[in-house]
């Protein structure tokens, strides 16, 4: 088993709503939404973990908490076996970087690509005044952009090229872990493929560890070594990609995989049951999936299931009826 570079233990992130003065005076508890609610996740060095789930399941919040954009509300995070708090050192920040979804809002429109890279390279002393230009050129080559791109503003690029710039910005800090939050979801199919390939190459060549967050299950399967399935703030199933896809255990994973349209000729979509995606609540009684679950029993209403090992394989799921 390889070393764990980043691990979360019982991690949670609650968003606390604004409170009125009167509410405060009356001692009322502010509204708290547990977007991430007790997540355990380990990222083995050099692996790509795919994080899937539907909107509102907390997968983006989890990514942003791991990268340090949101302070966590509970649980712990360790980076290379060292606990890290909500106030990260520059070293710790550098080690975990993010690639964002929207190729338009993720680049400062008033800064040339070269200036943007130089700023962070110089700030972190990853290059000096003489070598910074050379390093910028290297980064452009790394992400497959022409050197002339350094002199241009973000608006002069297409969506796919902007995503490459965003990747170059993350790589400039020489991170160990990349968190790709829906990094290809806004792109056309043909461009999507080239960015997915680029990320896979970079991960291999630079020895990165990657968390690939996406609602697109087909892409996640393509890039990931391991899969984590999230539902209402919890990870409900986790394991090797081949294991989870070929032998899904949790009823939600089964529903999710059955709902994905397939490319196989003659395929007809599985029978998706009726039911809506519930919104996150402050508290749950029992299992969060019971309202949509086809195999729910009375025990599900009282027991909050924990992740348990499935057989002898590298695969775990959180369901009491397995």
């Amino acid at each position: 088993m390889s070393d764990i570079v980043l691990s979360a233990s019982n991690l949670s992130k609650h968003f606390v709503g604004k409170q009125s003065l009167i509410g405060k005076l009356r001692g009322k508890e502010p509204l708290s939404v547990p977007a991430v609610d007790g997540v355990d996740l380990s990222m083995p060095a050099g692996s790509t973990i795919g994080l899937v789930g539907e909107s509102g399941c907390g997968k983006s919040t989890l990514g942003r908490t791991l990268v340090g954009l949101y302070p966590s509300s509970g649980g712990s995070l360790s980076l290379f076996d060292r606990q890290i708090g909500n106030d990260r050192s520059l070293e710790e920040r550098r080690a975990v970087q993010m690639i964002f979804q929207d190729p338009y809002s993720s680049l400062n429109p008033r800064m040339k690509v070269g200036d943007m890279l130089e700023e962070i390279l110089l700030f972190h002393k990853l290059a000096d005044k003489e070598s910074v230009q050379k390093r910028c050129v290297e980064l452009m080559e790394l992400v497959g952009l022409p050197v002339t791109a350094l002199q241009a503003y973000p608006r002069q690029f297409s969506g796919g090229q902007r995503q490459r710039i965003g990747i170059a910005r993350a790589l400039a800090l020489e991170p160990k872990i990349l968190i790709a939050d829906e990094a290809v979801s806004a792109l056309d199919v043909s461009v999507q493929a080239s960015i997915v390939n680029l990320l896979q190459d970079l991960k291999r060549d630079l020895g990165l560890t990657m968390l690939f967050i996406s609602h697109n299950i087909a892409i996640v399967r393509q890039v990931s070594d391991r899969i984590a399935v999230m539902y209402l703030g919890r990870i409900v199933e986790e394991g090797l990609t081949s294991e989870v896809f070929n032998n899904p255990q949790h009823p939600y994973t089964k529903l999710l995989l059955g709902s994905v349209p397939k490319m196989t000729p003659g395929s007809k979509l599985g029978a998706a049951p009726q039911g809506e995606l519930p919104t996150i609540q402050a508290r749950y009684e029992g299992c969060r999936f019971q309202s949509r679950c086809p195999i729910a029993t009375s025990a599900c209403a009282t027991t909050d299931p924990a992740l348990i090992q499935i057989g002898s394989k590298d695969h775990q799921a959180a369901c009491i009826n397995l």
């Binding site: 043909s190 999507q192 896979q200 299950i217 087909a218 399967r221 393509q222 995989l257 397939k262 196989t264």
Partner: peptide, 23 residues
């Protein structure tokens, strides 16, 4: 052909996706 090969399929994991160059 290129579109079909560049779209990942949930039933298969391929070594590498086909990508279409250019704009």
């Amino acid at each position: 052909y290129s579109l079909l090969k560049s779209a990942p399929d949930v039933d298969h994991q391929s070594e590498r996706l086909f990508s279409i160059s250019g704009e």
